[in-house]
Simulated scan of single mutants.
Amino acid sequence: MLHAAYPIHTERLILRPFTADDLDDLYAYHSRPDVVRYLYWETRDRAQARQALADRAGKQVLDAEGQSIVLAVVWRENGRVVGEVNLAWLSRAHRQGEIGFVFNPEFQGRGLATEAAEVLLRLGFRELGLHRIIGRCDARNRPSAAALERLGMRREAHLVHNEIFKGEWSDEFVYALLDHEWLNRRPAAPRAARPPV
């Protein structure tokens, strides 16, 4: 069972449940084709983003397997929601979980997703008592794969043509980290901001 105390602060970020005031920031990235390219949903109009926001706002506690938490990631430098992170409880008996993240490309390349995901690893391993946490991504999604690797996760599988995704065969990478590996590794260091293009 996980009942985290929100907000959660990191060096540069605030992680907290979504609120109705986050609609503009969430819509800013949920409406972008480049964001949803490797996700299971399509771009959202404002009404669909409002519904997605309401769904996310209710996901802040893990009481049973099959549930997930979804947290807004606020970059303290500008006070905006720049993305979201999630932790799913896959199995109580086998102590398994899964992390994921979606970020506004305007704020990528600064290590914010990695910094936020570090919090979810801590919640999963330390607070929920998980033994194994996985992360999955489309094999073409190099930024997500790189973020999972920076977290110290090991690529355990490259599933070839494992599903028809948005009309074409796609490959999937599966990454994993065990509780003792997490305890013994060095947390990912924040990345320096990329120079403006």
Rank of each mutant, 00 (worst) to 15 (best):
V74G: 04
F165T: 03
F103K: 04
E77S: 15
G129Y: 06
E118V: 04
G97P: 07
G167E: 00
E65I: 13
R95A: 14
G152V: 07
I133Y: 02
A157E: 03
L151E: 10
I164D: 00
A117M: 09
R154I: 08
W169G: 14
E156N: 09
Q108K: 15
V82I: 15
V85F: 05
Q96N: 14
V102W: 11
R76E: 13
W89Y: 15
E149G: 11
A145H: 11
I99F: 07
L87I: 10
A72V: 11
L90M: 14
R126L: 14
H131I: 03
L151M: 13
N141M: 00
A88V: 08
W169R: 12
D138G: 10
G152M: 05
V73W: 03
R110G: 15
N141L: 00
R136M: 05
I99L: 09
N78K: 00
M153S: 10
A93V: 14
L121C: 05
D171V: 09
S144G: 10
I164E: 02
N141A: 03
A117P: 01
F107W: 15
E168V: 12
L120K: 08
N86A: 15
R122L: 07
G135V: 04
S68V: 04
G135F: 02
R150Q: 09
H158I: 00
E172P: 00
L71G: 02
N78H: 07
F165G: 01
F103L: 04
R142G: 11
G109H: 09
P143V: 07
H131V: 03
A113W: 08
G135N: 06
P143M: 03
R140I: 06
V70F: 11
G135S: 13
R92S: 15
M153V: 07
V82F: 14
L123N: 05
L151S: 12
L120V: 10
G83D: 04
K166T: 13
G100W: 01
G152T: 11
V81T: 14
S170Q: 06
H131M: 01
A146T: 15
A117D: 11
I69N: 03
R132N: 08
H161N: 12
L130G: 13
A147F: 05
I69M: 02
W89V: 12
V160F: 01
L90P: 02
G124Y: 03
A145M: 03
N141K: 00
V102R: 11
A157L: 00
D63C: 11
V82A: 12
R76I: 12
V119I: 10
V85G: 02
E98N: 14
G124S: 05
L151A: 14
E168I: 08
R76C: 14
N162A: 08
E118I: 02
G100C: 01
T114G: 12
V85L: 01
R122Q: 08
R80L: 08
F101R: 09
M153T: 12
